[in-house]
Design a protein around this nucleic acid. Structure first.
Length: 381
RNA sequence: GUCGCCAUAGCUCAACUUGGUAGAGCGUUCCCCUGUGAAGGGAAUGGUUGGGGGUUCAAGUCCCCUUGGCGAUC
């Protein structure tokens, strides 16, 4: 059960200020959802995560099913207890892994294409299958990245697992398409995702809120069809997923095609997007929630975000630098550690270095979004 | 003093018995990593082979001298 209340609609854009209530607390939206794939924000414990102003986390069905298995988490009293996170929680359905272990891996591409496909670029045709997994009408056969054994994940199973995990909000099982998808493939995939969405809803017995996921790749017709269909099923909220085209412009277009068809009173979650430079734009397009691995993932690589751009602390030039990562940041790391010291830790591959940058990045991103909420409140956005 | 061993990329080392103008790891720099197979992946950079002479078509490799280091022995 969730409750979503919109406090203010912007007059300048589609942005809105809201309150999302779950059984585990109140989430002020728009809000970043840090990623805790394996029931942990890598390098941080739950107390530290809380200190980064994080309000809600997203864990992953596929990974937790593999390790340690939903039965163990259920027996431990559910995900909240298991990972000692008292705040709100989501679980992703595993639909993204259909992409990242499938065509994403085959073509070495992400959700947004970084280059314009040349004439020789392969387009994923209607009946094509990825190398390491098989997609059928019932679900997806994976080869375990851990030991190679065959695994199956489909709508029914994804829901069952998510019920056992026990997050506040769960996602329907979908196929996240790749940017090189042909129209024919996208259409066929969308039919599957829609069929699965219905099965997910029909099979859910828990009181957990469930978000349906809009797909349709970069095609206006499909995106609109998907938005209308998913909207009609009675989900508690919406995820917008899949590939977002060839550039950030197409990402904005896709959001503009989709969002008008979604019930206004329900929360909208943009899946897997959130470079610092994207955040204000997606919020202006009407996004309430978005998850992204960038602050944590880049943090472990030693990339620290600041108001003046990112710092690659791996570089030797930072070793003698006595400044904090960001002079204006009030986080524990910036109050206590220098760039030089953190650079040393990162270069020495010390886990504490990764932890300090992860902590700062999350605090910085959360503060950044907090400021956007303030701007919406003040009518500036 | 005498004898022996060693000296090759910023660092640690390869390049064999039998000469064919040098490779790797690490480092450094850069790039890639948006619902995390991700403490990951890729690329570039890098050397008058301690110095000088000689033999040879050809020398890191063989010979002589020299410099520096290490060891053994009077």
């Amino acid at each position: 059960m969730i409750e979503f209340k919109i406090l203010k609609n912007s007059k300048k854009s589609w942005a809105r200020l809201g309150i999302l209530k779950t059984e585990h607390g109140v989430v002020e939206t728009p809000c970043l959802v840090p990623v805790a794939t394996q029931a942990v924000v890598k390098t941080l414990d739950s107390r530290e995560v809380k200190e980064t102003k994080t309000q809600i986390l997203i864990a992953n069905t596929f990974h937790l099913h593999l390790k340690p298995g939903e039965k163990i988490i259920e027996a431990a009293g559910g995900l909240h207890k298991f990972m000692n996170w008292q705040g709100s929680l989501m679980t992703d359905s595993g639909g993204f892994q259909v992409f990242s272990l499938g065509f994403g891996k085959d073509f070495n591409v992400g959700k947004i294409l970084k280059y314009f496909p040349g004439q020789n670029t392969e387009i994923i045709k209607k009946s094509r299958q990825p190398k390491f997994l098989k997609i059928t009408q019932d679900g997806v056969y994976f080869q375990s990245p851990l030991d190679g054994r065959k695994l199956f994940l489909g709508p029914k199973k994804a829901i069952k697992i998510q019920e056992q995990l026990g997050a506040d909000i769960i996602f329907a099982f979908d196929e996240c398409t790749a940017p090189l998808t042909s129209f024919e493939y996208a259409k066929k995939s969308l039919e599957r995702t829609h069929k699965w969405a219905k099965i997910c809803l029909e099979n859910k017995r828990s009181k957990q809120a469930i978000f349906g996921i809009v797909q349709g790749s970069r095609f206006k017709e499909l995106r609109q069809e998907s938005a209308k269909f998913i909207n009609s099923l009675g989900f508690d909220g919406f995820g917008i997923g899949g590939d977002l085209g060839q550039s950030k412009k197409t990402m904005k277009k896709i959001l503009n095609w989709t969002i008008p068809y979604l019930e206004k009173s329900k929360p909208r979650h943009l899946l897997g997007i959130g470079y610092l430079e994207d955040i204000e734009n997606i919020i202006k397009s009407g996004i309430d929630l978005f998850d992204c691995t960038v602050p944590t993932h880049y943090g472990r690589r030693g990339v620290a975000f600041t108001g003046l751009g990112d710092l690659k602390l791996q570089q030797a030039k930072f070793l003698r630098n006595k400044n904090p990562i960001d002079r204006n940041c009030k986080c524990f790391v910036c109050q206590n550690y220098t760039r030089g010291y953190i650079s040393h830790l990162i270069r020495a591959k010390e886990i504490t270095g990764m932890k300090l940058v992860t902590f700062h990045n999350l605090y910085f991103f959360n503060t950044f979004v907090e400021e956007i909420r303030k701007k919406i409140k003040e009518g500036k956005i």
